[in-house]
Design a protein around this nucleic acid. Structure first.
Lengths: 127, 127, 127, 127
DNA sequence: GTGGTCTAGACCACA
DNA sequence: GTGGTCTAGACCACT
């Protein structure tokens, strides 16, 4: 059972106007995609996380369940929650993030009638 | 007599899981940025719009209020609502959209530890 | 907005030893598959259901959210929850139920070393 | 000297999201019904099993207790645990498995308003 | 009115 | 110890 660092409030940047669990999912997902959280690593327990992040345990549970639906973490009953060892799932997730980001930009470009190059140039213009 | 634009339900692509007014704002904003809705064009009244789009009048009101806050439309009491003739406001809005799209991509790249080029390549990979 | 009958406690057969929301999902899913709940029908609201079934609103919400993940119902913000009009999703769900049932029987047969016919005969034997 | 069966991790297919002891019971029960584990065969001790399967000893205890409750295994104090030699108990268990599998299919069929034949045909349909 | 999020706290099964 | 379910009740945004 590999060691696990407990989260601190500095590990997350939270926007109080958006659902907390959603932001936790996004940011933990990024940590896994980045490799900062390695396959097989045990995540801090629901209660521990709730205490250290000062949120309700059910909020953490919702976060973990969502990550499990994304196949990024696995729960072993009575033992805890672990980053999946299926590296394929992690690769897929990372690719999904990349595709979504690019697609979003393409859609913005199209919606305002610009090519990607034009959008890029416009964003870079000073003033 | 300014041109007038009447909406039909086909003018918008709506996702029921997101706030409708937000989607209307985004899509009308894009139409203005694209020039598809020209400066000075008169928009249909709140009641008309609500009827033709089959949504609640308050949803349309919120949409128009938000677009007014962005200085993209102006309301002349008793006369109606018009796309602004301040081309500067439209340019600014278009630029904001471009900057936001690029920034969003940069943040995704950073969050998963890739450069923009790597993110781009990953999104383009087949399979 | 089509009418909707409110659930009564007789609409569900509940086993207290299993998660309630899971049983609600199964049984509502069956009602949709069976055509008893037609496409476009509005489901009773979360609060109303909670009151009539004597359960907590969050339990009903979990039920509805799970059904939404199965693409069997759709939520329109501020308006309520409706059986999907995508008949394809309903067909798919119905087929999944059938496949699961058959597969489960095949696996049982295989696990005890019988053919389907033998399993069937054995189940039918009297005494 | 009775034959003895030692488990390896490959003897079981485990789904971490379900209780482990339950899955052990099901699968050992099937092995006995199938005749793969013969009457009189000695099972390894709780501690041995826990070690070879890498699970908690209490999980194995619960498994053995449940199998004993089903009269499929018997424990002789100080001598060990053995597959029952009461062939009647094994027959009964095999039949219960068959009945349960058929009943489950019948209930699925009924719940979605199909006959068994229709359910079967639906499950077999291509696409 | 609708659904959605969050909290606080109880209770349970599993390992 | 772990996660999972359920309750009661507050508060919010959207229509």
């Amino acid at each position: 059972m590999p060691p696990i660092r407990t989260w601190t409030m500095d590990d997350f940047r939270l926007d109080p106007s958006r659902p907390l669990y959603e932001q936790f999912v996004e940011q933990i997902r990024a940590m896994i995609a980045k490799g900062e959280l390695e396959p097989g690593t045990r995540l801090p327990s629901v209660r521990e996380t709730a205490a250290s992040l000062r949120v309700n345990p059910t909020t953490v549970m919702k976060t973990y369940q969502e990550l499990e639906r994304l196949s990024l973490i696995v729960t072993y009953r009575g033992q805890g929650t672990f980053v999946t060892e299926e590296e394929e799932a992690i690769r897929r997730s990372r690719k999904e993030l990349a595709v979504a980001a690019v697609r979003q930009m393409e859609e913005t470009a199209k919606s305002i009638g610009l090519t990607l190059e034009q959008l890029w140039a416009l964003a870079r213009e000073k003033e």
